[in-house]
Each structure stands twice: as structure tokens, then as C-alpha cells.
Computed example of a mutant assay.
Amino acid sequence: MNRNLILFFASILIMSILVGCTDKELKVPLEDVGMVGIMAFDYIDENSFKLTVSIPQFSPEAKERAQIFSVTTDLISKGIVEIETLSDKKVVLNQLRVVLINEEFARKGNIQKAIHHLYRNADVGNKVLLAIVKENGEEMLKAEYPDKPNVNIYLNDLLQPSINTAFNPNTNIHDYMYTETNPVFDTIVPLLEKKEGKIEMDGIALFKEKHMLKELPEEEALIIQALLGRKKLAPLYLELNQAEQKEELMMDLINSKVSIKGNKNMESPKVSISLHIEGTLVEYRGGREKELVNIKGITKLEHDINKQIEKDIKEFLEKLSELKVDPIGLSENFRMYYKGKWNNKLKEEVISNLQVDVQVDTSIISTGTLK
């Protein structure tokens, strides 16, 4: 056999043996591995932050359902190493499910570096869910929730998209990276707040480039979801202002369909929005209960709902125009016809000058409790 061929096979054999030995040396017993389920970032100053992790405990002998460790650091990797010294375990991020960012951290613009670092980490999945915490992420993880199995399962279930969740504008790492690097979108992230011993979804955080700009309430977040084309919407609460008497209603099981068309004119941009929604009127309070037992009365209510939703959408889009932000991607209707490289400045020009025509068509397919 050729001498060079013999040396080639010998080198492959030696490399295989070395790799095998290395793998054996790197293997860590499962009981010595700490699998991080939640990671939280809390702002301290421009050069440092508090990194907190929650590691679920699966052993029936464990006194706590999750171990919580916090360190002050300036680098994520450095913080993980410091946490390993506290936990006496090899800390891994393969099972990371939720990342919490406190509001001050997000407003200072530091969230970008943190998410980019996790996105580049091959051990971290793109479906890790993100949320902004109004106060302190460490305190949220360390709080007691007696009726919940552990904080890892609690937060993961709360942020997961579900038909049983009344309001859930969930955002994962992939969503964040897509909107943060896309010049026709501004990022939105769900906002969490701890209230009376439980964690609640409390609207969304609206970003402008890398900074959290503003907190938006739930009803405005629902408008974003509808105009983004989400087919299934959360229950819709409305106050009708057309009538002299105050009217309130709740619609559930809502299906929606939206069509948005731009006029392609960068100098005088205009979009026409057509939104169709249908659902069940589960509750009504007002002065027209007797009218809602026939088609004529339902049709009149649908007309008034249309006018109210049209008004709400126009007012919300005017707010976005003033802020020069576009979480819906309306500027995409102009970017696709623009000859040249699109950027954030062009997006802001379109949104700040945008004229909007809104048409809403509501279908009440059944009625529930009328009061």
C-alpha cells in the first residue's frame, strides 16, 4: 500500500481516538448540570447589570422548585461563569425558554446587545420568548406564587401563544431580530407586571430602533395585532360613544381579515385599510337590549361598532404618526415600489406624513348575555 495512504488513514484513526477521549472528558453527569429556564436582566448603570437565572429542580428531594442565582456583571458570559461558582453546577442554556428585561434596561438601549449575544449562541433557540418587566426581573423570579408549580413553567405558559390566553402579543428572539433589523418595522415586546401575588400581561412595550420608546395599553396592542393580519383576536371590549347613553359590549371568538393598500406616492403617502371582523356578542350593557332580538337591531349595532373601531384605529395611527414609529409595517406598502435602498429615515418620513382611510365591517354571528 502506498506509504502516503497509510499515513493518511493512521492520522484519521489518531484523530478519532483523540476526539473520542475529548468527548468523554467533556461529558458532565446530568445531576451536575444546571439547565437555565429563565434569564433576567436588570439595569444598574451604563457599564453593568444584574443577571439572574432560574434553574428548575427536578429532584423530588429538592426543597425548592427552582434555584435562583443573581450576580452583578458587565458581560453575559462572565456572569454565567460567576453563577456556576455559586451553583456548583455546569450552567447551560439549552433549555432557556424565557428572557426578562427590566424596563429601565430596555429604555437605556442595552437590550440590543443582550439579545444579539443570545441570538449568536448556538445553544439558545430562536423561539425563546421575550418580555419587558415593569420593575425588577430578579424580584419577579424570586417572588412566591403558591398556586403555580414553579416560576419557570408559570412564565413560559403565560407567554406562549394560546387560544385560551385572552391577550398575548408574544415575541421571541427571532421576532425581535427580524423587526429590529428590518427598516419597515419597529419592535413590540409584551409587558409584564407583578400584581397581588401574580404576574399579568399589561400591554406592550413599543421600541424605536434599539430603545424602548413607549408603553401601549392592551386595546392599542389589539389594533396592531388586527392590522398585522392575525386571524384570531382576543376578546374585544368597546365603549360606544355615538349614543347619548353609555354603551359597553364585549365580543369574543373573533375572526379577522385585513387588507392594506398604499397609493405608492412617497410625496403624499396614503393607505386604505379594510378590516373585517366577526364574533359573538357575549355581553352588552346599554339602552338597546330590546332592539337586539331582531336583525334590524343587530345591523344597527354592527354599524355603530364599525364607526367606533374606525375612530379608534385612526386615532391610534395618528399617535404612531406623531411618534414616527411603525410596528405594523405600513411603510412596506411604499418600500416595495421605492427605487433605492430603504432605511429608517424613509420609514419615518412615510409614517409622519401618512394619510389613512379606514373601513371596518363587523358581523355579529350570535349573541350571549344582554343586560
Rank of each mutant, 00 (worst) to 15 (best):
A221N: 04
A221W: 09
A221I: 07
A221C: 08
A221M: 10
A221V: 04
A221L: 07
L222I: 08
L222T: 12
L222R: 10
L222M: 11
L222Q: 10
I223F: 11
I224F: 01
I224V: 05
I224D: 00
I224G: 05
Q225V: 03
Q225A: 11
Q225M: 14
A226Q: 09
A226C: 02
A226M: 14
A226G: 00
L227M: 08
L228E: 13
L228A: 11
L228Y: 03
L228N: 14
G229S: 06
G229K: 04
G229P: 01
G229W: 07
G229H: 03
R230W: 14
R230V: 09
R230L: 14
R230K: 15
K231D: 15
K231N: 10
K231H: 14
K231L: 03
K231E: 14
K232S: 12
L233P: 00
L233R: 01
L233H: 08
L233F: 05
A234F: 02
A234Y: 00
A234T: 08
P235W: 05
P235G: 03
P235I: 06
P235T: 03
P235V: 08
L236P: 00
L236Y: 11
L236V: 03
L236N: 07
L236E: 01
L236D: 03
Y237M: 05
Y237S: 13
L238K: 07
L238Y: 00
L238T: 12
E239H: 09
E239I: 03
E239P: 11
L240K: 01
L240R: 00
L240A: 03
N241P: 00
N241W: 00
Q242F: 04
Q242M: 04
Q242H: 13
A243D: 07
A243F: 15
A243S: 13
E244C: 02
E244W: 01
E244P: 02
Q245R: 14
Q245D: 13
Q245A: 14
K246L: 07
K246D: 13
K246A: 08
K246M: 06
E247H: 05
E247S: 13
E247R: 11
E247T: 15
E248S: 14
L249M: 05
L249H: 07
M250L: 13
M250C: 07
M250V: 15
M250A: 13
M251N: 06
M251C: 07
M251E: 06
M251T: 06
D252Q: 14
D252L: 07
L253V: 00
L253G: 04
L253K: 14
L253W: 03
I254N: 05
I254C: 02
N255P: 02
N255Q: 08
S256I: 12
K257I: 03
V258M: 10
V258P: 00
S259N: 11
S259Y: 09
S259F: 15
S259R: 14
S259E: 13
I260C: 01
K261H: 05
G262Y: 12
N263R: 08
N263M: 08
K264D: 05
K264H: 12
K264V: 04
K264F: 09
K264W: 10
K264G: 01
N265T: 13
N265W: 05
N265C: 09
N265H: 08
N265D: 15
N265K: 10
M266D: 10
M266E: 05
M266R: 07
E267Q: 08
E267W: 02
E267N: 12
E267G: 07
S268R: 13
S268D: 14
S268L: 12
S268I: 06
S268P: 02
